[in-house]
């Protein structure tokens, strides 16, 4: 997603820069023409407006940049506590990444982590069994 949005934005900026340069050249040419015609024949020059193609290019460029930038915004997060906590439960860190794939700095993890990590919640029998198996494994490896 981020590569798409970046390339769209870059393309739009290129169009915008080209339109800007064209408009600048156009106005420079107009003022040059006005100066020379004033010297040669004192005919009044027509009112000079921007050529339609430059105007169209500018508007298209700004629309393209707009789409690129909107696609590049980081994903929103639910503001309701229950939806937010449910999203954390379901997706974990994956739901809280920005466009570069980095987990956001203000992601603190499960809001109920302090409850689930209480010493009362530790399954001591299971841990003892795991420890016993680990010790057995060590003994077999050493033989």
């Amino acid at each position: 997603m981020t590569l798409i949005s970046k390339s769209i934005t870059a393309f739009g900026s290129l169009l915008l820069a080209h339109a800007c340069y064209s408009a600048q050249e156009h106005s420079a040419l107009q003022s040059f023409r006005a100066a020379t015609s004033a010297v040669l024949t004192s005919t009044p020059t027509a009112a000079t407006s921007l050529p339609i193609d430059i105007a169209i290019e500018t508007v298209v460029a700004i629309l393209v940049i707009l789409v690129g930038l909107v696609l590049g915004t980081s994903p929103l997060r639910p503001i309701q506590w229950r939806e937010w906590a449910g999203k954390i439960e379901r997706e974990g860190e994956d739901g809280f990444k920005d466009n570069n794939g980095q987990v956001n700095r203000d992601y603190l993890g499960n809001p109920f982590g302090f409850i689930e990590g209480r010493p009362n919640f530790v399954d001591i029998r299971k841990q003892r069994k795991e420890f016993a198996e680990w010790v057995k494994g060590q003994g077999e490896q050493q033989k």
């Binding site: 909107v70 929103l76 639910p78 503001i79 309701q80 506590w81 937010w84």
Partner: peptide, 19 residues
């Protein structure tokens, strides 16, 4: 009854504001 998450509110409005 249905509390809001302040960080998410700030994150969303910051995203929109930046854009």
């Amino acid at each position: 009854i249905s509390p809001l998450v302040q960080e998410s509110l700030a994150h969303n409005s910051r995203t929109l504001h930046n854009l």
